[in-house]
Write a protein that binds this DNA or RNA. Sequence first.
DNA 1: CGAGCGATTGAAAAGACTCAACCACCGTGG
DNA 2: CCACGGTGGTTGAGTCTTTTCAATCGCTCG
Lengths: 229, 229
Amino acid sequence: MLDKSHKHVTCSTCGARKNSLFANNCENETTLVEEQKTCAFYKKNQPLFIESSFPRGVFCLNQGKVKIFARGDEGKEQIIHIAKEGEIIGFRAMFSGEPYKVSASTLEECNICFIGKEDFLNMIETNATLRNGIMKELSKELGDRAVFITNMAQKSVRERLAFALLILGDIYDKEEINLTREDLANFVGTATETLIRLLKDFKEEGIIEIHTRKLEIINKDKLMHLAGK
Amino acid sequence: MLDKSHKHVTCSTCGARKNSLFANNCENETTLVEEQKTCAFYKKNQPLFIESSFPRGVFCLNQGKVKIFARGDEGKEQIIHIAKEGEIIGFRAMFSGEPYKVSASTLEECNICFIGKEDFLNMIETNATLRNGIMKELSKELGDRAVFITNMAQKSVRERLAFALLILGDIYDKEEINLTREDLANFVGTATETLIRLLKDFKEEGIIEIHTRKLEIINKDKLMHLAGK
DNA sequence: CGAGCGATTGAAAAGACTCAACCACCGTGG
DNA sequence: CCACGGTGGTTGAGTCTTTTCAATCGCTCG
């Protein structure tokens, strides 16, 4: 549980920054960000931004998990990515000149800082290291999404679930995976019922443990094999 | 048919450049590119680069169409994008530091120029307009791929085919769509047989005309409706 | 003219989805 | 403290889309 009273995060002492694109900022750059940002506590299931609206800045995730998702024609969510501590969220739309093509929403209680568009773009313009980091990140994600598309198109739901659990295992690291069945289904790209049946199979095969809603990966090797790696 | 003897393209007179990210280059920048690039004629079905190899530079498509695809575990291609005249190909891997996650291969006879990695990265570093164009492009594609993923996960094959044909209609512009059934199936993300059956349906519904291998879109409105737009 | 690849068709099987019902846990308010 | 309502989780049955496999066709190129 987060300390809800502590809503202000200081960049210079921010633990999440070490793993972020701001990691290589020097001291006066950090101070600059510190002055420009605002900071807020988010409850579970609160939106950061919504598809088709226009971006006003970027979000810096200090604590918690955030889902990035698009909505299909019937309104069903497709989760594209789950962001964890240290990630900067929403910078894509800073450059594209388009409205957001995805939405972002907290999966749990979060501490999130905000940097305005102007400030962020200025930083990009003047700080080559940061800029290169951003370009690298954009590029990496683009590659990841090519793989994601291919998985969606060619793998069975069972294989995709295995793949998804591996990704989630990394994201949740030492914690247990903690998502609603619906969110997990929307990440895998399947119906909730199908997902539940497959989880049961995985459990019976000794691949995962199910602790009510939380999932624990028992046999990572088997998962990797299933995912086709 | 291309004039195969004319293998050299001059940037300053290159028609494709007008629609490219190099469009805003000033004269001496254009001269610079001109000096650095090499130029080649490609036959049909020739690879530009292959997944998991390391990038040596970027490709500038002067004439023709190029498919960008990933391979699934069984080797089946998933076409992610089809590039046309004016597009710069392979710059993602310039920044990511990773090997290519996709392959590129010509779909027809092409004229393609090549700019080495060093030269390209220098240009990016010094030319802010070009750089911003690249960042914008990376961002746009990232957004497009979120939509692509969602379509794959949620739409039926029929809907995806409609969607694909609309995209192809734009890419082939005034020409007729000219792909093997297999390539089209690998773009839509389905089996070749399924694709063929659906094409037949579309034809019977007066949506497309089939001229042996080439396809002509007759009723774009109906397609848009089918694609769920 | 024949080989071979790409295109097409049919039939059967499999995977996944939908719908409907039911359960279980949790927080709320009486 | 307990009944209530609601959300999220689970199960079963039936249906439908899509895939797979096998066979045939037909054009094009050498």
